[in-house]
Write a protein that binds this DNA or RNA. Structure first.
Lengths: 230, 230
DNA sequence: AAGAATATGTAACGAATGTTACGAAAGGAG
DNA sequence: CTCCTTTCGTAACATTCGTTACATATTCTT
């Protein structure tokens, strides 16, 4: 197979990806015939890039999946996240002042990756405003998510984190009766605390008459006091 | 004064800003004559935008300064940051899925702000690759900074935060004898902990023979053990 | 050099939080 | 319905951490 020819299913993945979404797939096909992109194939689990390697472009998972891991000197390894088809990596690093991968990348199964070098990215941005918007959106949303995380983790009391989560859900659902989308463990992970600690704080908020709840059905009784906590 | 005409000093500010740096100021002048930008003037302290307002472009502080504040229902207000000439706001929000300001903006003294609407941004990206790179760099660096902050705040023990700070400095300075660039208070703020807690953890690391220090002169004695902490 | 201002170390105490273990409740499979 | 699995609440205990206050050290002023 010509390494620059994309299959139908690969094109479908691209057209649904955050980076190439909202672009018609016919033009996608044309694009890739004129760009110096590469498709890398990892038939079996293998190291794709090591922590510290220089990043030279944006990569998109076409098939299979990629594990982002942190390898410690002790030999211990922590999995940061797992990337599925359509997901990208390198987009944050490529234009930043620190062009080195902060963690290592491994293909887990039969995996194909589309690599777009930096200059091709610039060309794409110039040619396709949709791509530019997508790329910007990708970065911006990442900042937004991170900001939220920082805000939550910056509270020095667990009670504040819980309150901020409840107020966030209140803004989203726009009603005092909340049906929470996460179970306790997910909620605790999101807030960066152990599950029993979360239960304790919820109980404490209930004792103080700020909220009522049973399982995932919550009711905010005193928004003002919840707000002033934060 | 024609509102789209920039003074020499304003052009100098722009050419040193993260967004318009590396671009010759003669072409800058030309650019702004063809773009639908606006310069807003706030002679005295005034509200520029409220939390929740829709962001319609990127703004750059030309003169004076802007305070980013969070107003609480209780009437209490927290200053998030203060923007100086050359600093920008809106660049993260404008392309994200959440186009509302997360906090309120106030001019503090006699202040002038250059506003570039969204479509003019896209035009600029197409016309000036340097601008595109700058904008991407701005967003990417922000993600990078945020990621660091999240990583630090995610450690559940203070000792880990301190260790990660020391290892970070070790990577930067590339030697075991470190001369730390922050005083204790700045260090503590960066790590999100009170100053006495930082001193206690440093003392504890010294007691355990992992480091030696006097004031800002540090020496890492056992890198491996420091690493395994993290 | 003397004194003031600032930065840092230290200790004690209490409050907040992590840990562990276990019981109760809910949901699912047979 | 009963058993099993998962989720959740709860309590006891140990630990960490924040707070406060003060001592010591350093730097800055005059």
């Amino acid at each position: 197979m010509d390494k620059n020819l994309l299959t139908k299913s690969q094109l479908r993945i691209l057209s649904r990806s955050p980076l190439f979404g909202k672009m018609d797939s016919s033009s996608l096909e044309l694009i890739f015939q004129h760009l110096k992109t590469e498709i890398y194939h990892y038939p079996s689990p293998k190291l794709i890039a090591s922590e510290g390697d220089v990043c030279k472009g944006i990569s998109i998972v076409l098939e299979g999946s990629v594990e982002v891991k942190k390898l410690h000197l002790s030999g211990k390894e922590t999995t940061i996240t797992e990337l599925s088809p359509g997901d990208t990596f390198g987009e944050v690093i490529i234009f930043s002042d620190h062009k080195h991968f902060p963690s290592s990348l491994f293909s887990v199964k039969n995996t194909r990756i589309l690599h777009i070098p930096e200059d091709a990215i610039l060309t794409l941005c110039k040619m396709k405003p949709e791509f530019l918007k997508n790329l910007m959106g990708l970065l911006s949303n990442k900042v937004w998510l991170m900001s939220n995380k920082v805000r939550i983790l910056s509270y020095d009391r667990l009670r504040q984190r819980v309150a901020s989560y409840l107020m966030e859900q209140y803004r989203i659902q726009d009603r005092l009766q909340l049906s929470l989308p996460h179970n306790r463990q997910e909620m605790a992970d999101y807030l960066g605390m152990p599950r029993p600690s979360l239960s304790r704080e919820l109980q404490s908020l209930k004792d103080d008459g700020l909220i009522r709840y049973h399982r995932n059905e919550f009711e905010l009784l005193e928004i003002e006091r919840l707000e002033t906590l934060i």
